[in-house]
Amino acid sequence: HSHMSHTQVIELERKFSHQKYLSAPERAHLAKNLKLTETQVKIWFQNRRYKTKRKQLSSEL
C-alpha cells in the first residue's frame, strides 16, 4: 500500500469535485501528472465515491 502525498490528494480531490467518474484516458493522464499508477487513481476514486455515498445515506437518516 503506497502513501499519497498531501499534494496528490489535493489534486485528486479537485478533480473529483468536477467529475466523479474518469474515463480511462483521463485516468491515465491524471496518474501521469501526479506520478501515481492508474490503479491508484482508480481505487482512490472508487473509495471516494463510496465515502460520498455513505455520507449522503447517513445524512438522510
Results as ranks from 00 to 15, higher is better:
61 L>F: 07
31 A>T: 02
47 N>M: 15
25 P>V: 12
25 P>I: 14
23 S>K: 06
41 V>A: 01
48 R>W: 05
32 K>M: 10
27 R>N: 04
20 K>V: 06
43 I>Q: 09
26 E>S: 03
14 R>T: 05
24 A>S: 06
46 Q>N: 07
5 S>P: 02
39 T>C: 14
10 I>N: 07
25 P>T: 14
17 S>M: 13
27 R>I: 15
20 K>A: 07
59 S>A: 12
31 A>S: 04
37 T>V: 02
31 A>W: 01
16 F>H: 03
60 E>S: 09
18 H>G: 06
15 K>M: 14
26 E>R: 02
49 R>H: 03
18 H>E: 14
46 Q>L: 06
23 S>I: 02
21 Y>C: 06
4 M>A: 03
58 S>H: 07
7 T>M: 13
17 S>R: 14
30 L>I: 07
26 E>N: 03
44 W>C: 02
3 H>F: 10
30 L>N: 00
30 L>C: 06
35 K>L: 12
47 N>Q: 13
45 F>I: 02
22 L>G: 00
4 M>C: 13
27 R>E: 04
18 H>T: 12
26 E>V: 04
47 N>V: 09
40 Q>G: 03
36 L>T: 02
48 R>Q: 11
10 I>T: 08
35 K>H: 09
42 K>I: 07
56 Q>T: 06
4 M>H: 03
22 L>E: 00
14 R>W: 05
15 K>L: 12
18 H>D: 10
17 S>W: 08
4 M>K: 02
7 T>E: 13
14 R>H: 10
45 F>M: 02
51 K>D: 08
34 L>H: 01
9 V>R: 10
54 R>Y: 09
21 Y>D: 03
57 L>V: 14
55 K>N: 13
20 K>R: 10
43 I>K: 09
23 S>M: 02
35 K>I: 04
28 A>Q: 09
8 Q>W: 05
18 H>P: 02
54 R>T: 09
29 H>I: 14
40 Q>K: 02
21 Y>M: 03
5 S>G: 04
52 T>C: 15
35 K>G: 15
37 T>L: 04
18 H>S: 11
45 F>D: 00
11 E>L: 08
61 L>T: 15
45 F>C: 04
45 F>Q: 01
42 K>D: 08
15 K>Y: 15
21 Y>F: 08
6 H>Q: 10
1 H>A: 08
11 E>D: 03
42 K>G: 04
54 R>C: 15
11 E>T: 06
48 R>I: 07
24 A>L: 10
56 Q>C: 15
2 S>V: 11
31 A>F: 02
21 Y>V: 03
50 Y>E: 10
24 A>E: 08
39 T>Q: 13
17 S>D: 07
44 W>D: 00
41 V>R: 01
33 N>L: 15
53 K>E: 11
56 Q>I: 09
12 L>H: 01
33 N>S: 13
60 E>T: 05
20 K>G: 06
55 K>I: 09
47 N>I: 13
11 E>P: 02
38 E>C: 06
1 H>W: 08
34 L>I: 04
12 L>M: 03
22 L>C: 09
21 Y>N: 02
43 I>R: 10
25 P>E: 14
15 K>S: 07
41 V>N: 00
5 S>F: 04
28 A>D: 04
9 V>K: 08
30 L>V: 05
35 K>F: 11
14 R>G: 03
19 Q>K: 12
25 P>Q: 14
41 V>W: 01
26 E>W: 01
3 H>Y: 11
32 K>E: 10
44 W>N: 00
1 H>V: 10
49 R>G: 01
37 T>M: 03
25 P>G: 15
32 K>P: 01
11 E>Q: 11
33 N>F: 12
28 A>L: 09
31 A>H: 01
32 K>Y: 09
46 Q>K: 15
1 H>Q: 10
61 L>R: 07
50 Y>K: 15
36 L>E: 00
7 T>C: 13
16 F>Q: 02
59 S>M: 08
45 F>L: 00
34 L>C: 04
20 K>W: 06
9 V>T: 09
45 F>G: 00
38 E>Q: 06
60 E>A: 07
57 L>G: 13
12 L>E: 02
28 A>F: 06
50 Y>I: 14
54 R>L: 11
7 T>Q: 12
57 L>D: 13
53 K>T: 07
27 R>A: 09
13 E>S: 03
8 Q>G: 02
8 Q>L: 04
22 L>V: 04
